[in-house]
């Protein structure tokens, strides 16, 4: 631990409160009223957009200047997708992809 226990506690407290705030915000703003029509349109389609953004977010440090900066994550993502299309078992896809990534960064591109 670099920080003291009380410093760490404060950091986690701030993170917890901010997280709670973002989760409650729409319910605070709109309460028991109906959502405005434009937001009703977004509701069903937004999840797919958000997950796509999150995937790119996880891969944000990818760069193409050297193989070590893109091969491990892109190959492992491909492994996850292929495993999932094949067996459609979340556990298998996650463990398989993560094992592949760990092998690539620890052994192949060490």
């Amino acid at each position: 631990m670099i920080l003291s226990a009380s410093q760490s506690f404060l950091i986690f407290l701030v993170i917890a409160l901010c997280t709670i705030f973002t989760r409650f915000l729409p319910f605070i703003i709109f309460g028991n009223r109906d959502l405005p029509l434009p937001l009703q349109y977004l509701g069903p389609i937004l999840p797919a957009t958000i997950m796509a953004v999150l995937v790119v977010y996880c891969l944000k440090s990818t760069a193409f200047s050297a193989p070590a900066l893109w091969v491990p994550q892109l190959v492992s993502v491909a492994v996850v997708v292929l495993l999932h299309l094949w067996k459609r078992q979340t556990m298998l896809s996650i463990i398989g992809g993560t094992a592949c990534y760990m092998f690539l960064v620890q052994v192949v591109f060490a």
């Binding site: 389609i45 937004l46 999840p47 797919a48 957009t49 958000i50 997950m51 796509a52 953004v53 999150l54 995937v55 790119v56 996880c58 891969l59 994550q73 492992s76 993502v77 996850v80 997708v81 999932h84 299309l85 979340t90 896809s93 996650i94 992809g97 993560t98 990534y101």
Partner: peptide, 25 residues
């Protein structure tokens, strides 16, 4: 990352239109 890719793949397979996912990417 793997978990998000799995959820993304699931949503892709079940989506009525891929436009929202492609817009996101």
């Amino acid at each position: 990352t793997a978990l998000f890719v799995v959820i993304f793949t699931e949503q892709w397979l079940e989506a009525k239109t891929h436009i929202p996912a492609i817009v996101g990417i």
